[in-house]
Design a protein around this nucleic acid. Structure first.
Lengths: 198, 198
DNA sequence: CTTTATACCACACATTGCTGTGGTGTCAAT
DNA sequence: ATTGACACCACAGCAATGTGTGGTATAAAG
């Protein structure tokens, strides 16, 4: 019965609402939405809000300003990125592996993303295969931080260590060995949290 | 210079704003705050908002409705509870060990709380001493779920298992042994996520 | 051919909501 | 004695905002 597929424009409007809530922590007013899409009538915006409501993506508290709630869980997520290039996570659609559902924990900032850990090289630190690491993009890190580094083409999670004058990326698993930091290794972010979903 | 200590009333107002944002996902208007505290004047509310702004707890975007932002990180957190009694987490102040900073991940729901894991009984599942487990309150669980159970006085994280007719709470560490589910063991919630902070 | 959904417009209206400009009184610090 | 922070009040102005009631046009579905 309920066809919850969105048209392109409806998706655009929903995305705008989502971004406002996510980054400005404040749902837009009808007129703010209208301005964004150059609608000269508030009625047009209502048509969209009605459509989104009917399709179950938002909920609106009548009479209140800015009272748009996001309903579909699909929105309460951080992007899980596949490729990481030249120190910059690639947000392009083809690299978006999906979304990490953070349950009711929403509103991640724009410089936070997630990567899915592959392998058990950090097993003894409790980072298991399949875990998500939440990363804040940054090009620096301190010794003993757990970082995501790019070695050539591959993103890897390791602990930054210093022995003598040299820096290493240490695994937490005796089956793996430390990787010396060379000019090819770039730190792209610091692991803020490990999240495992059950 | 800046004394950021709040008076009791100011804290009450801040708490109300926080709760509205957290649970209703919508900051209150000046009049909504006034209604709550039976202020007959909007000016009174402004005095409070000014005080909270000056002390650095909130930020207000002028001219916009409901444009109250929470500033202090202290607010973007889930409660970490100490005691868990009779299947109900105790939210009383004396049991509030502190708050788990979820970084920019905010707006946990009202039935979600966190416990800090003690010991290494779930080590092989990657749940380490000191990790936080995010729990949704619920009195049921499925076999193989990782649950928080109350055995007598103590809350423990284990995996729910069934062997034959009997249910057990299995550890994930050969140094510990399974605990049979008896009438004294109550499931108080399901582990949704493991969060480890660095 | 009619209905339904989409995608817009115009404009009026009432209320909501922020702001501005006053005021009173208490209490602690200077 | 005065200043400043606190804790309130009254009320008016006006812009922001949601709502109501219309309208047009297109396209797909029945």
């Amino acid at each position: 019965m309920t066809n919850d597929k969105l048209t392109d424009k409806q998706r655009d409007v929903l995305k705008f609402i989502y971004e406002q809530i996510r980054f400005k922590q404040l749902a837009p007013t009808i007129r703010e939405i209208g301005d964004k899409f150059k609608f000269s009538s508030t009625g047009t915006v209502r048509d969209y809000l009605d459509a989104l409501t009917k399709k179950g993506y938002i909920r609106i508290q009548e009479g209140k300003s800015r009272a748009i709630e996001l309903v579909k869980e699909a929105l309460f997520q951080v992007p899980v990125l596949g490729r990481v290039q030249a120190g910059m996570p690639v947000y392009a659609a083809e690299d978006l592996l999906g979304y990490l559902n953070l349950d009711q924990f929403v509103f991640p900032g724009p410089d936070v993303f997630a990567l899915r850990v592959r392998g058990l090289s950090m097993k003894d630190d409790g980072i298991m295969d399949g875990d998500f690491v939440l990363i804040r993009k940054q090009d620096h890190a301190q010794v003993n931080d757990i970082v995501v580094a790019l070695i050539g083409d591959e993103a890897t999670v390791k602990r930054l260590a210093k022995r003598g004058r040299d820096f290493f990326l240490d695994p937490a698993n005796p089956d793996f060995h430390p990787i010396p930091m060379t000019s090819e290794a770039i730190i792209i972010g610091k692991v803020l949290q490990v999240v495992r979903e059950y």
